[in-house]
Design a protein around this nucleic acid. Structure first.
Length: 425
RNA sequence: GGACAGAUGGCAGAGUGGUCGAAUGCGCACGCUUGGAAAGCGUGUGUGCAGUAAAAUGCACCGAGGGUUCGAAUCCCUCUCUGUCCGCCA
């Protein structure tokens, strides 16, 4: 969330930045300031009374030891106690509404974030490779997967429901090969530490990484235990350090984690839902970084490069775009999306979204570091990016390496994991 | 799921109604001492909010929330978590 102090100090600048996101959120600034004003007034009044009570109570203790009668002063203090209670209820309520409001205000887009109204305005920053040319009409991944028995779409529907799939045989092994390849790449080549977190997370964690309170409708919720299925490893992994004051010597912290991701995709029915492209459960290897504020922009570039490396090694054509202020995610200050070319779709598919959250998540989850110079605590910066989403990578792989005879080639880097050079049936 | 025991500062660990934000020890930082080091001695060492130019200072925080009281780390209630044992189980 945003720092209430900086909202107090630069309300106009904050409104300007928020306006770049579009919509009406910027109006929350005045609202939160009004509450803040009332809150602090009540707080100060309460503290004065508490101070008086503390002093007098000590005096009562001393007087009683000396055997003096304190009944009169006790009656007087009872009145102050009542008043303190009232003010206490008031400040608690104001505090809660201020907190709720702050949690619903998105992050400020960074100055380095391109200005634009919507996805149309997202600039492309680079492109790698070229779309493969085919001497035959390329099939889409659904046809290919069914032909080789890699993915059983009907079984997923039977066992669970629509937008769930079952990988089988070589299809399952390819998925497993990709997971292992990605984890090995990032841990041995890019310096990330592997983490295998729980797939269910609590409310506090989801607030920390911004999925709650605003986006709960996208989450699967286990009512009995009040736990949620993680929509991304970002949630359990970033929250590993919630409520911590980390030593600067351990920064940057870099984690790579494989998890399945669970998303209700409410309201997305019928939009690009064919095959593996948009599912309620998909695998992903996520990259998470926690670093010093001054390094976060450089770390974002590195993280994005680490994700792009996946596609380069697999020989998949892609482009990297920069999200503009109107399209950027709720908690992000700056985001790159990586889109892989899928010949069967005749278009690009988003396989990674790499974001720098600045101190926005850190402030929510009280993730700080102690500056060795000033001895003061400051909020870390957090970043994350897919490295990469598996299902769409799978789509691009099948569609890119398909041959006229129906067989599918396996890129060299994947062969040791998959145990074969091609899929042929 | 059942029974019992716990939850106090970076850690260990006192404290069962009143100058307790909290003894003591360890750790850590700085200083003294020393040729240098160790030992020793001294001083300091949590977080948040408010406040200030910066300080000073005030308030809150002893797992969380509520209650009793003039006053709560301490008494009462609820909850959460941890440990141990039993049961069940991959």
């Amino acid at each position: 969330m945003l720092d209430i102090k900086s909202i107090r100090e630069n309300p106009d600048r904050i409104k300007e930045r928020l306006k770049l996101r579009g919509g009406e959120v910027w109006k929350c600034v005045d609202e939160v300031l009004a509450i803040d004003e009332k809150r602090r007034t009540a707080e100060t009044d309460k503290q004065h009374l508490q101070s008086e009570r503390n002093r007098t109570s000590k005096d009562i203790g001393i007087a009683k030891k000396q055997g003096q009668d304190t009944a009169a002063i006790e009656t007087q203090m009872r009145g102050i106690g009542t008043r303190i209670d009232e003010l206490n209820h008031e400040t608690t309520a104001l505090d809660a509404s201020q907190e709720a409001l702050l949690l619903s205000i998105p992050n400020l887009p960074h100055d380095a974030c391109p200005v634009g109204a919507d996805a149309e305005a997202n600039p492309e920053v680079r492109r790698w490779g070229t779309a493969p040319a085919f001497s035959f009409p390329p099939k889409d991944h659904v046809t290919l997967a069914k032909h080789h028995g890699l993915v059983d779409f009907e079984a997923g529907v039977k066992v669970t429901g629509s937008a769930f799939v079952v990988y089988r045989g070589k299809g399952a092994k390819l998925e497993r090969a990709l997971i292992n390849f990605l984890l090995d790449l990032h841990t041995t080549q890019h310096g990330y530490t592997e983490v295998l977190p729980p797939f269910l997370v609590n409310t506090e964690s989801l607030i920390g990484t911004t999925q709650l309170p605003k986006f709960g409708d996208q989450l699967y919720h286990c009512q009995e235990d009040n736990l949620y299925l993680a929509p991304t490893a970002e949630v359990p992994v970033t929250n590993l350090h919630r409520d911590e004051i980390v030593d600067t010597a351990v920064l940057p912290i870099c984690y790579a984690a494989y998890t399945p991701c669970f998303r209700r995709e409410a309201g997305a029915a019928g939009v690009g839902t064919r095959g593996l492209i948009r599912m309620h459960q998909f695998d992903k290897v996520e990259l998470v970084k926690i670093c010093l504020p001054e390094n976060s922009m450089a770390e974002l570039e590195k993280l994005t490069a680490d994700a792009e490396k996946v596609l380069q090694i697999l020989g998949l054509h892609y482009r990297t775009i920069e999200l503009c202020t109107g399209d950027i995610g709720f908690g992000s200050a700056k985001t790159y999306d990586i889109e892989v070319w899928a010949p069967g779709q005749g278009g690009y598919l988003e396989v990674s979204s790499c974001s720098n959250f600045g101190d926005y998540q850190s402030r929510r989850m009280k993730l700080r570091y102690k500056d060795p110079e000033t001895k003061k605590n400051y909020f870390c910066h957090t970043l994350n990016g897919s490295g990469t989403a598996l299902a769409r990578l799978y789509v691009a792989l099948l569609e890119t390496y398909q041959r006229e005879d129906g067989s599918i080639g396996i890129p060299p880097a994947l062969r040791p994991y998959f145990g074969a050079e091609e899929i042929r049936s």
